[in-house]
Design a protein around this nucleic acid. Structure first.
Lengths: 128, 128, 128, 128
DNA sequence: GTGGTCTAGACCACT
DNA sequence: GTGGTCTAGACCACA
């Protein structure tokens, strides 16, 4: 499904979250699809189950998955409305990244071309 | 100059770094300009000098400032070349942010318009 | 493992770094081997944990070790490529040392014989 | 004569010392030749006279120059004998540098060839 | 004045 | 258990 980098400075549970988010956002994981159990996930990634549990708990808090007691966790429906704050955070992040790219010599046109070529169901290698 | 949030979950020294990076990238702080001494900065922010020192040391490692022994720290010259890895990280981050925005219902056109309106010396309210 | 000289003019954290570098470069410490925890090392050397932490952080920055959150630090893989600048610095240092040795009466042949006898996994008493 | 790098992490007085040592060892400055006065040197390098004074004092301690009261400082005679400790320090430094070069993938032959090509009166760009 | 090092000791997050 | 952050406060070297 995906891999995590134990040597990374990023916390493992955050890496797990990021990977799930990416798979959900890119449409690989669809609404109401079941996610692996905590134990299976932990075994697959060879990490501590507590770590996976923390990732799932956070994902649930942020609305990406929901849990049915005794049955496991499932992908939540895409947010139909709301999340204004989330959206502005994302825009701010883009703003900063674009400015730093320009500071580092990238042209605005190159950046816009890059953005234009992004498709809704496409993934990028490794990120943040 | 700027403020930091002592209650934030983000480390103080990282907040200091982010603020300086933003001021440098947006052109507010210019090449060879002197930055406040560690002690002054610590007093202004009401944090421990060691914390500011850590921020400055990291900023120096990352090439944003340079230090002259016994005289203080100064804004470094913008990166003329290299930083390929940095640049690809920034592009990846934009990629992910754009995808999540589209997942949340924003249109590609709205995002591109947003990017087109970013100027090289402009700041954004709260970021990251 | 090794000892440090608290009275030396050289910073303690630098002594710790130098010792680790020597053990790594000479092959005594091998890839993925665990290094003592910060607390253990501090106890062994009878110095403050913060001092050891600084040494470890720098060693990580320079690519000699890597850290797994919550598990400790480990010896990194030898540099496969790059480090052009590092290499030229080392050559420059040799250049200067050889010239000073000749200035002090050592013959070129004696120096070359010395270099020829250096083995990849050999240590030298006290250095630097 | 030479330049110093104010931005370097190396102390200015040490840079001055290193430069003089290099000029002496490479034969550019010869026995009994006069070295610039502290004031002239400070003006030329645009540094504090106290800094130059410290460099000269250290150079005198290490036997590279000697001072005649009221007349200035002069290059000392090359060491005819002694300095066993200095010599072993230089050999140790070479030992370590060679080992690190091999660790970084340089071959022994390449290093030996490099040493063979060093001439007594040749300089190297920037060192250490 | 400046930054750099070190200690002692507390608290937090991750595994 | 592990490393990471922060504080308070001392001392040193350099310019």
């Amino acid at each position: 499904m995906f891999q995590i980098d134990l040597k990374s400075r990023k916390a493992i549970y955050e890496q797990v979250m990021d990977n799930f988010k990416r798979l959900i956002v890119t449409g690989v994981l669809k609404h109401d699809e079941k996610v692996p159990s905590i134990r299976d996930m932990a075994k697959t990634l060879t990490v501590n189950p507590n770590t996976v549990q923390k990732a799932y708990r956070e994902l649930e808090n942020q609305g990406y998955i929901y849990t049915v007691l005794g049955q496991g966790s499932f992908i939540a429906a895409p947010p139909s409305q709301g999340g204004e704050k989330e959206i502005s955070v994302l825009y701010d992040s883009i703003h900063n990244n674009v400015q730093e790219l320009m500071f580092r010599g990238e042209t605005k046109n190159a950046i816009i071309t890059f953005v234009e070529n992004i498709k809704e169901g496409e993934m990028v290698s490794g990120s943040n």
